[in-house]
Design a protein around this nucleic acid. Structure first.
Length: 571
DNA sequence: GCCGTTTTCGGCCCGACTGTTTTCAGTCG
């Protein structure tokens, strides 16, 4: 049973307990356990209760519950709860403005069983008479139902960046705004974001708030006060504003960057030292002892500054305490891009244009990696065309002064794990990427064998976008990451963190697990046009979330050192 | 339900905004 399913059941328990008005700390224990299991790189179902018990926030009881789910596929507690609390109430919690109390009221007094039922009741004006409701809340629910019509949608980080950067520019234009930046999951570099958190340094709270809600793209003002405001943009994206004075800006930036779990853990440390940490600063009694800089918060609990990408309560606090934080790779470390396409297959710009654009970015080298014949739809190259392309690459290199172009290929891995190009041609290339483009739904064992066979092929250098997932669209291949990464490390094969905003594949957790197993990572854009070469930043951020240091990433190396990694060091 | 350099019991992060309420509960982040 996948971790995601165990996590889903635990989260459902938490929600049902919440609806029963159970002890909030008991509720939190279940939702915390759900998060811990979800983020575990190994399969929780295969762990003994003793091993489960070692995980943070998992005690005797939860270890037993998880083992029960793994063994039986369900949970007695959950079945019992379902008898007491109608499932419909859980669905109602998804509507902003409806929490456990109101959800319970809706189900118990009006017998609402679905979102459609909620919409009918709201439109016929039955809600406003209920205790704890009112005309304003009824109206809010009607408007939220019109917007959402279902579950919360997260948008790609690169998309959110476009909205966020435009809004930042607008806010910075207001006199009295000294700083403005995006915090929240955007700053942590998460691949998708649910909303934007905009932090502004200014002593003029009300004026900042006023300007914010007048942003031309605002469709609805959800809340407005002197220190906080929330709006929904025309696109549906929610943006939360926080205004802070200079002496609190660092503490506020820290606070609103999150994650929630990370913040709670750090605040607890502060509490143990007799300190109170909130968005306004660090306090000893009533006296502020810091808050101007983000570092003030870390100083207060005796930790070095932790990069936002690591703030997920996944062991970064312990690592920081022991001085074992990785020095994360940075965009400026990147010396080249190891996957891109040209007009020879499905790219939109020529070989020369791609090289020219890479040179403008200051790269030392790039790899041209067009597709192989099996992908007919993208005009994949056969042996003859690869040999011709090689000659053009050689001529191009003779002309270029600062950039070296490696002749490569992105070779399709067939269903049986064999490669879609003959060995002789593969050996003639400077760099060989392999990737899945079909049969993503093979059973796990078969999928694992398929990729392992490709990794063992002597010509292979990199497994590109290893799972083939498309965020929000396609789950991607399921394989045993531990075995694949272990084999990759053994055979000197790299795994890619693909920088396309919809791929970002490997994901953060897999990237970290692979690095821990000794794998070298390649961060590549898979650009299909010269503009897409700029996607590198998203890939770097994803690798940073995967705890990648500069040394873990192949294409931070100078060309000479990179070449030693290729063809398994045989050249 | 978890957890321990105050604790095996008694705590558990913290504050803003809204609307309903008659001084504060509910919700959110």
């Amino acid at each position: 049973m996948p971790n995601a399913e165990i996590a889903r059941l635990l989260r459902e328990v938490a929600e049902l307990l919440e609806l029963e008005s159970a002890n909030t700390f008991r509720v939190r224990a279940y939702s915390n356990a759900a998060r811990v299991i979800e983020e575990l790189p190994e399969a929780a179902a295969t762990l003994s209760p003793e091993r489960l018990h070692e995980l943070p926030g998992i005690g005797d009881d939860l270890a037993g519950k998880i083992a029960e789910i793994a063994a039986t596929g369900s949970l007695k507690l959950l079945r019992d709860l379902h008898r007491e609390v109608p499932h419909a109430a859980v669905e109602l919690l998804r509507v902003p403005g409806i929490g456990p109390k109101r959800a319970r009221t809706l189900v118990d007094t009006l017998g609402i069983r679905s979102m459609a039922g909620l919409a009918r009741a709201a439109k016929s004006g039955k809600l406003k008479a209920l205790p704890g409701f009112g005309a304003a809340i009824e109206k809010k629910i009607i408007s939220e139902l019109a917007v959402h019509s279902g579950e919360e949608k997260r948008i790609l980080r690169a998309t959110a960046a476009q909205y966020g950067e435009a809004l930042l520019e607008y806010m910075r234009a207001l006199p009295g705004v000294r700083r403005a930046e995006l915090a929240g999951s955007f700053r942590r570099g998460r691949e998708t974001v649910g909303d934007l958190d905009l932090l502004v340094e200014s002593s003029l709270g009300v004026e900042v708030s006023e300007r914010f809600v007048k942003y031309p793209e605002v469709r609805a003002v959800l809340a407005k006060g002197p220190t906080r405001a929330s709006v929904r943009l025309a696109s549906g994206l929610q943006v939360d504003l926080r205004v802070l004075p200079a002496e609190s800006y660092g503490a506020g930036l820290y606070y609103f960057t999150g994650s929630k779990a990370h913040n709670i853990a750090v605040r607890k440390m502060g509490q143990q030292r007799g300190l109170k940490i909130n968005e306004y600063g660090v306090f000893k009694g009533k006296r502020s002892i810091g808050g101007r800089r983000e570092q003030d918060v870390f100083d207060a609990v005796g930790l070095p500054w932790i990069p936002p990408e690591l703030r997920e309560d996944r062991g970064e606090i312990e690592a920081a305490g022991r001085g074992k934080l990785p020095k994360l790779v940075e965009y400026g470390d990147m010396r080249g891009d190891l996957q891109m396409h040209s007009t020879d297959s499905d790219g939109r710009d020529s070989l020369d244009a791609m090289a020219e654009a890479a040179q403008e970015l200051g790269y030392e080298y790039i790899a041209i990696t067009d597709h192989t014949p099996m992908l007919r739809i993208v005009n994949g190259l056969d042996r003859a065309r690869f040999l011709l392309q090689r000659k053009r690459v050689d001529r191009l290199n003779a002309r270029l002064r600062k950039l070296t172009v490696l002749a490569g290929a992105e070779v399709d891995i067939r269903a049986d794990g064999s490669l879609d190009l003959d060995d002789e041609t593969l050996e003639s290339l400077d760099i060989v990427l392999v990737s899945l483009h079909s049969k993503f739904d093979l059973p796990k064992a078969g999928q694992t064998e398929r990729i392992l066979r490709a990794i063992r092929h002597p010509a292979v250098d990199i497994v590109a976008h290893p799972t083939g997932r498309l965020i929000g669209q396609r789950r991607g291949a399921g394989f045993d990451l531990e075995r694949v990464a272990g084999a990759a490390a053994d055979h000197g094969v790299m795994l890619e963190v693909n920088a396309q905003p919809t791929r970002l594949d490997l994901d953060d957790i897999s990237c970290r697990a692979a690095i821990a197993l000794g794998v070298t990572i390649a961060i590549s854009t898979d650009a299909h046009s010269r503009d897409e070469l700029r996607n590198m930043r998203w890939g770097v951020d994803q690798a940073r979330r995967g705890w990648a240091a500069k040394g873990d990433v192949a294409n931070t190396r100078p060309l000479k050192a990179l070449l030693k990694l290729l063809h398994k060091g045989r050249r």
